[in-house]
Nucleic acid binder design. Structure first.
Length: 270
DNA sequence: CTACGAACCTGCCTGC
DNA sequence: TGCAGGCAGGTTCGTA
């Protein structure tokens, strides 16, 4: 479900409701997620104040006075703000209850998400290996070209690799390549610096615009209030197989690249 | 090192 | 209407 814009939308949505409050209870109804949810979390974090909610790639970091929870939404996870009066539904796996009875609730039908703890986020094995943030200054054309040396993977697979750059998932990879006019099957090592500059610009533009619109809702993404995003109306190629390219009217083509559905315009992208 | 497929799990849509 | 099959926004891991 969530790529960087959806995770960022969730972060912005939940933060104002919970930051500055102390944790009263942490209820884990289903500990079997992508990795087991540690079983001592409530004891460890109860009474601590949530200092802030930040994001690294698609991970949310809840900072409880320098004891951190990492939350990943996987493919189908979502977070919402609710109250103890609302009974948990199916797949509501974790509740954070704060001192004013605000509840942060984690729902994840497919259980590909994760809730983990760490005191040193930067050194956590899952975070330490991540590439730069796409909206930061150290994500650049020269960086991408350097990391793609001798690599023949399709460019779409490269930009979806979180070790190269975080946050670009299956939707925004297709969208960004369309924006840059680059064919998704091109070998990463063959892309020129000029093209990489267009790609960096395109990734940043696509992600920023999606964040502005509250993310993309294809079937089930909802924000902290349970409402959908609006970026799907802006999608240029994703999910538009056989529909006319918005630039040249050629039917959008569909391919599997690395087992992931990929969409592109055969005329606008080379 | 690179590249590819399998695995984790549930729900929804399509087609017979 | 029922059911099998395919597909889904992510990521790690094992094997060539």
């Amino acid at each position: 479900m969530p790529e960087l814009p959806e995770v960022e939308t969730s972060r912005r949505g939940i933060s104002p409701h919970i930051v500055g409050k102390s944790l009263t209870r942490l209820l884990v109804r289903q500990a079997k997620l992508r990795w087991p949810v540690p079983d001592n979390l409530e004891q460890r974090l109860s009474g601590k104040i949530l200092l802030d909610v930040s994001r690294r790639g698609k991970y949310l970091l809840l900072n409880f006075d320098d004891d951190y929870l990492l939350v990943h939404l996987g493919m189908s996870g979502s977070l919402r703000i609710t109250s103890p009066a609302e009974l948990p539904g199916k797949h509501d796996h974790v509740d954070w209850v704060f001192n004013d009875d605000t509840v942060l609730r984690f729902n994840d039908p497919r259980k590909f998400g994760a809730v983990l703890s760490t005191t040193k986020p930067a050194e956590h094995p899952l975070l330490a290996v991540l590439g730069p943030e796409p909206l930061s200054a150290n994500f650049s054309a020269t960086y991408l070209q350097q990391r793609s040396q001798n690599r023949r993977v399709p460019i779409k697979s490269l930009i979806m690799d979180s070790h190269i750059v975080v946050g670009v998932g299956n939707i925004y990879a297709s969208e960004s390549l369309f924006g840059a006019g680059i064919h998704p099957l091109r070998s990463a090592g063959d892309i020129t610096l000029t093209e990489y500059q267009r790609l960096v610009d395109s990734i940043q533009s696509v992600l920023s615009k999606s964040i502005q619109q509250g993310g993309t809702t294809l079937r089930d993404f909802t924000n902290a209030e349970g409402k959908p995003g609006y970026f799907q109306q802006t999608l240029q190629v994703y999910g538009r197989r056989n529909q006319p390219c918005r630039l040249c009217a050629t039917p959008i083509e569909h391919l599997k690249i690395g087992q992931r559905a990929s969409y592109f315009c055969p005329v606008c992208q080379h």
